[in-house]
């Protein structure tokens, strides 16, 4: 079903671009910093500019959110940003444009997307076009590997990374099967809950990282609730990467691109402390 061999951008090296970025950051000491921003908030050009500013200030992996009408894994900050982006007329193809422009920085760029927009686009066509735009892969918050046969095939064909989530409630069996399905890293949700800024990172996080590694994961990054350099440093002490979302989105909303840049710099200092 795929035109993998001839697809532009599908170079077929079989190595994870995201994994390489994380390994390079680890080699410099500490952990990798993964920064999330939704495309189209407050508008397409500014969201791209903000993502590039994050990279300039030390973000190793960029996670670009594809705004979706029904974001069940997101808390109020990201929900509001996604809704604003959609009301501003953002289209799925704009996300590919953003990927291309951010990937020019050399950072690994993942798209974080709920599953229906990909289903609608066509799973293989999406993988092909994402690869052609220079994207590294996908993070899929509402797709578990059990339901993702078509994405496993398309990501293989187009040499893309697959990031699935694990949660504190995941059984050892599920940690193992999810880890085996991921390429790049495993996303460990630090708490049972949705995205948002939290005062403390879930105490379950360190244990979850350990269990996920024990289940065979090569790299484990931790997300949900990290907002400060302190928290970033704490998570960096036990994880391969630290994922920050809502705090960056809030900075963009409150202080524009400069605020995103300075928060990214603080967080980067935290993860490499």
């Amino acid at each position: 079903m795929s035109a993998a061999a001839t697809a532009p951008g599908a170079t077929g090296t079989g190595t994870s671009r995201t994994g390489a970025a994380i390994d390079a950051a680890r080699a410099r000491g500490g952990a990798a910093l993964v920064g999330y921003l939704p495309v189209g908030f407050p508008d397409l050009a500014t969201s791209v500019e903000a993502a590039r500013a994050m990279v300039a200030e030390g973000v190793d992996v960029v996670e670009l959110g594809l705004p979706y009408s029904d974001p069940v894994m997101d808390g109020p900050v990201i929900q509001a940003a996604a809704q604003a982006a959609l009301e501003g007329g953002l289209r799925v193809r704009d996300v590919l444009t953003a990927v291309e422009q951010v990937a020019e920085t050399g950072a690994a760029v993942l798209v974080m997307t709920y599953w229906n927009p990909v289903v609608r686009y066509g799973v293989d066509a999406w993988a092909r076009d994402l690869a052609a735009a220079g994207g590294a892969g996908l993070i899929t918050p509402d797709l578990i590997p059990d339901e993702g046969a078509d994405w496993l095939a398309a990501s293989e064909a187009h040499d893309l990374d697959r990031v699935f989530l694990v949660a504190p409630s995941s059984t050892p069996d599920r940690l193992a099967s999810t880890a085996a399905s991921c390429r790049g890293f495993v996303y460990a949700a630090s708490t049972m809950g949705v995205t948002g800024v939290r005062a403390a990172v879930g105490s379950a996080a360190a244990g979850l990282v350990e269990a996920t590694r024990a289940a065979g994961a090569e790299r484990v990054c931790v997300g949900l609730g990290v907002s400060s350099a302190e928290q970033a440093a704490e998570v960096a002490s036990f994880a391969d990467g630290v994922i920050v979302g809502s705090a960056l989105v809030r900075a963009l909303g409150d202080g524009g691109v400069p605020a995103v840049g300075s928060l990214a710099a603080e967080l980067a200092a935290g993860v490499h402390r």
């Binding site: 918050p141 509402d142 989530l165 949660a167 504190p168 995941s170 999810t178």
Partner: peptide, 12 residues
Amino acid sequence: GGRFVPEALVAA
């Protein structure tokens, strides 16, 4: 059909 949910809900 199926279960297109966050992993956090799978155990439940």
